[in-house]
Design a protein around this nucleic acid. Sequence first.
DNA 1: TTTT
DNA 2: TTTT
Lengths: 118, 118, 118, 118
Amino acid sequence: MSTLKNHVQLIGNVGQEPQITNLESGKKVARLSLATNEYYKNSEGEKIQNTEWHTIVAWGKTAEIIEKYAGKGKEIGVTGKLKSRSYEDKDGIKRYVTEVEANEILLLGTKNGNNSAD
Amino acid sequence: MSTLKNHVQLIGNVGQEPQITNLESGKKVARLSLATNEYYKNSEGEKIQNTEWHTIVAWGKTAEIIEKYAGKGKEIGVTGKLKSRSYEDKDGIKRYVTEVEANEILLLGTKNGNNSAD
Amino acid sequence: MSTLKNHVQLIGNVGQEPQITNLESGKKVARLSLATNEYYKNSEGEKIQNTEWHTIVAWGKTAEIIEKYAGKGKEIGVTGKLKSRSYEDKDGIKRYVTEVEANEILLLGTKNGNNSAD
Amino acid sequence: MSTLKNHVQLIGNVGQEPQITNLESGKKVARLSLATNEYYKNSEGEKIQNTEWHTIVAWGKTAEIIEKYAGKGKEIGVTGKLKSRSYEDKDGIKRYVTEVEANEILLLGTKNGNNSAD
DNA sequence: TTTT
DNA sequence: TTTT
């Protein structure tokens, strides 16, 4: 999908170890939870943190970079697109989820510099 | 939320008339469904359309622009951020939704030019 | 260059006919001038237009789309990256220019819809 | 200027100490040089670095954050818009420059976390 | 549910 | 569930 039509960019921290699936085709899929944190002061001057959690899905080479480098707690940048899909949960209830399909991962805050997925 | 940390941009067509809610505070909320369309040719050379649907939420002045100008079928650009929230549906089932909270709307393809929300 | 590291997005109108160059290799280069327009009201309530002009350079397939569809006056979207280079002008003075190297063009406001470069 | 119409995003390293100017109004202006680095392997398999340099200009509160935190070598993210202007150099030659006017700075890779300009 |  |  065109970067102009459907484009997401996130910078945040990986919430837990990414879940890697090896497809029969040999391709990898990575799925991770990313927190983006916003800070602001409320009317009493207290520092408030507002965290948003995002589900990131990545395929192929980008998934491999996640597996190797994007462990729990790591600060990463992600670009990709929004995709929604539905599935039936274990109770047979139809669920809808919206995920960010990553086409690029950037490792931030690493001593040895950035490591981008392209 | 910072544009660097949590940023979404979409260009597409409004699926149906936006739903406008007037809050008691006098503020407006607009909620609309936006289609982003991707076209590609499959291995048989047929033109395939892949449509992704997004829920857009906007507040205040941006909601007013949507109410006035972003009717069904209109081509618009949106920037904003990803937000997820949960609610209980009418059957008491907990549901999660991910929406794009718009901070800017751009009206495209209008004779009298663009009309941005800022 | 990574979309996270160096990313430009513009929506505006083509200032004059794009200049197309056919390289010996058979590849095309397109060069065009794009206006981005901002409107605001000054303290007297007068509507002020502030126009910024950008030089866009595109190669190959993207250049072909520009040649065919992005004529003078057309409203287009562009994504790409910032690149600077120097050259000597006809008086032997070293000049520096900053251009946007496009990797995607989106035709907006056309009756027959959008035509993206990918 | 609208984020949809004129938007730049960069992630890179500060080339030298930012130059800070205190205007008579009390406002600050910061000007800095930012390197964005791309790495790729050439046909011989050698790792090649391609660096692009950008001039960033920031005003007010964003300039203050640069002064305090964005010293030489620091990894930062920047969003803003493209602006071009002309001036006469010391030899009376008219020069054109294109700069990124920052509206947000994000400090990356710091032990004490990110510090955004908004 | 849009648009081409 | 991260990070500061």
